[in-house]
Simulated assay, not measured.
Amino acid sequence: MLPALLNQTAPELQPWGTPEDIGAETLEGPIAVAGLLVLGTPETAISAGYYSATRGRYRVVYPFHEHATVLEGRVTITATATGRSVTYGPGDSWVITRGEELIWSIETDIVRKFYFATTGDL
């Protein structure tokens, strides 16, 4: 079991660099991203872990399907194909489909999530 509770102290995350280091494009920044894998690796079909990003905006085309829950902070995610925007805060979750292009607008000093990702076909 891998709990990710809102009231637990999050583990220390490892610096992952900038959005460009994870395949995204910074629109407003600078932004620092960090993470900690707790299941799998970026090369495996399934992975899970923690991710954080500092205040700013970036564009990303998702390389995997993802379910995530915000643990700290606020982010507005906009689907570029439809223009639909949703703001997420602690306890809120989403499902994103591989290949979807999104704009992340991080509205707090940091946003932290716990995620489960798969590259498998649907």
Rank of each mutant, 00 (worst) to 15 (best):
A32M: 04
S52T: 07
A32E: 14
I31S: 13
G35D: 11
G83F: 13
G73M: 03
T26I: 09
V70G: 05
I31D: 09
T44L: 08
I46Y: 14
G56L: 03
P42W: 12
T82E: 04
E28F: 06
E28H: 09
Y58M: 11
G83I: 02
G29D: 09
P63F: 11
R57Q: 14
V38G: 05
G35E: 12
A32G: 13
H67F: 12
G83V: 03
E72V: 13
G56H: 03
F64I: 04
P63N: 05
A81Y: 08
Y51H: 03
R74D: 07
A53W: 14
G56I: 03
L39P: 00
G83E: 07
I77C: 09
Y62T: 00
Y58W: 15
A32Y: 13
P63L: 09
V70W: 06
P30M: 03
Y51R: 02
V70H: 10
A81V: 07
G49Y: 15
E72D: 10
A53G: 14
G49V: 07
R59K: 15
A68F: 15
G35P: 04
T41W: 14
R57P: 07
H65Q: 08
E72P: 02
S47A: 13
H65N: 15
T82L: 08
S47K: 07
G29S: 09
P63A: 01
S52Y: 08
A48M: 10
L37G: 00
H65C: 05
G35S: 06
L39N: 05
E28C: 04
S47P: 00
Y51A: 03
V33W: 14
T26M: 15
A81K: 03
R59D: 11
V61Y: 09
T44F: 11
G29Y: 12
T80C: 10
G29C: 06
A81N: 10
L36A: 13
P30A: 02
T44Q: 14
S47C: 09
Y51Q: 02
E43Y: 13
P42C: 05
A45P: 12
A34E: 11
A45W: 05
Y62W: 15
Y51G: 01
A53V: 02
A79F: 13
T26W: 12
L39M: 10
V61R: 13
V75R: 00
E43S: 12
V60K: 09
V61I: 13
I46G: 00
F64A: 13
G56D: 08
A48T: 01
E72C: 02
F64P: 00
T78G: 11
A45C: 04
T76P: 08
R57N: 12
R74E: 15
A32R: 09
